[in-house]
Design a protein around this nucleic acid. Sequence first.
DNA 1: ATGAGCCATGGAAACGTTTTCAAGGCATCT
DNA 2: AGATGCCTTGAAAACGTTTCCATGGCTCAT
Lengths: 336, 336
Amino acid sequence: MAYTIKDVAKRAGVGIATVSRVLNESPNVLPETRARVLAVIDELGYRPNHAARQLVTAKTNAIAIILPFLTRPFFIEVLRGIEAVVANSEYQLIIFNVDSPEQRTRYFNTLPFLGRTDGLLIVSLPLAPPEIKRLQAANLPAVMIDTQASNLPSVVVDNVGGAFKAVEHLISQGHQRIGFVSGQLEPDLGFTVNRDRQRGYEAALTAHHLPIQAEYVRAGFDRRDWGHQAALELLDLAEPPSAIFAANDDLAFGIIDALRERGLKAGDDLAVVGYDDLEMAQLIGLTTIHQPMEQMGRKGAEVLLAALNEGTRRPTLHTLPVNLIERTSSTKPSKV
Amino acid sequence: MAYTIKDVAKRAGVGIATVSRVLNESPNVLPETRARVLAVIDELGYRPNHAARQLVTAKTNAIAIILPFLTRPFFIEVLRGIEAVVANSEYQLIIFNVDSPEQRTRYFNTLPFLGRTDGLLIVSLPLAPPEIKRLQAANLPAVMIDTQASNLPSVVVDNVGGAFKAVEHLISQGHQRIGFVSGQLEPDLGFTVNRDRQRGYEAALTAHHLPIQAEYVRAGFDRRDWGHQAALELLDLAEPPSAIFAANDDLAFGIIDALRERGLKAGDDLAVVGYDDLEMAQLIGLTTIHQPMEQMGRKGAEVLLAALNEGTRRPTLHTLPVNLIERTSSTKPSKV
DNA sequence: ATGAGCCATGGAAACGTTTTCAAGGCATCT
DNA sequence: AGATGCCTTGAAAACGTTTCCATGGCTCAT
């Protein structure tokens, strides 16, 4: 079929080893030899066979990214950051989406990327110790993004601190009764975001000597319609909160929707703060915690590439900062 | 390092050919032999080496997807559909994002996926004839999604027809002066969406004996802020349009934003129709053309997999339907 | 009983590289 | 002039599979 290194060698009147040396930019090749070989390569349109190369070098030049819920904006942004970095490297990006606990288990049991990739980026999915052990046994460098493992490099944001900031902001606006709406606290796939943000919520209340009221905490699902429903439930309480902190922007959108349904307006009638700073948050004036999603992806990819190229493999923890973006959904309420 | 087929053969007391036969589910193996080999495989935790296998079979078990602007919702949805199908196959998904004309050129000139993938999914990027020729010369099956090539299987939606529907809807609501806001008509990367939708816009006007007025057509950029700016420009005309058809939802969001700035409301004061039916369109009540983005991805992936498995390679054209979703942004205007 | 044919199996070639090792040429130093 | 050593080069081994081909045992029909 396609030309092989042998064809090039024959045509250039050299041995295949010399062609290989030219291909791999070995310094010990006479300039004129190199030129001749390159000319033949160009003439034939020769391209080295990846599989053969991989077989002998045991290097795939690919890395895999494993992430859940390809549909959610957060993961897309992370993916973007990763892609941007990887595209500028010699590596290719193989993507594995996990949408269910079964799929997750299957992936980490069968390790389908083993032998197909040089490294692994794991987004948001916490790993059990035996799973980590298996990765390390397979000698597969891995970097965790938005989740943490003590013996793997990890890139995270401070979810507890971010939630603390959000709630503290509401308190500084004079709010005393602050609701919390989030997805499952112990979800199937083991994310800890919601739990962490709840912790930040509680810490902020406690720090300001406010009570933690169970009826103000609504943990349900990571879906907009849950935000909607939870907001209605909170509004129907005998003493409804005057502000709501949503564990992510999507929930906040649902909440704002519910308010509108009741003829209320976020900001004027009830303060709402979200988390993520999705593009849409700006559009509708949602106060929220900005987290550098794309940058998390970038950072994670950079750490992995560094590990691959330089062999560095210390399990460093990179914590990226989050900050509050004040918009109209949390302006000072008329009545406190 | 890892165990090889030789280790398994030796330990099972068979030849390597027999192990290979077991691995590949060849029928001509005695059940007891098979069982013995499988036991050893399990015992050693043996896993076949991909590179070696690829080298001899010339099959990679991977497909590549090339798409622009990983950040835009449309492409994400398509990607989702593709991923869903591919995940259930034996193939892995390698992703190439192209954000600039240079990158596009580089990809299609160097064909970095050549020899690394068995097939190609190309999203939205039109291909020049020589590029197609090169793909076919390399014997790389490819399927186009949201773009069309006469000699490659293609999955498209009817953009002209969709735009026609949108504008016809506005006309049926009594509108006579209808603006059109879109991104570049001849963009760098060669998309034809905007051009196609403009054609639909003009066709609808003509079909209903309405004039095509140049000042009502605002082609600029595929960005929300352009929608914003274009809307303001249209409003400032001596005789502003009473309705605007936006070539995509994102532009429509910008338009609605601009209206709000002027104290106007989409639907009440000026009708707005978008295109895409993004999730957010529902949230803000935008009338829009729904296109089955995820399904396009699914269909494209299915066509490619069929081509790979069955060797079918006819350049069939699959056109998916679009339909109008009526919401509040296009309710009957007070004054016509 | 004998030949034909089938089935399970193993040996070995082939896939296309990289890399090791040996060798030859040439310049430099003594 | 001869020895030393570096630089360039090529032959061949190795990587771990699949697959072709040959072989031997067995069944079945004659």
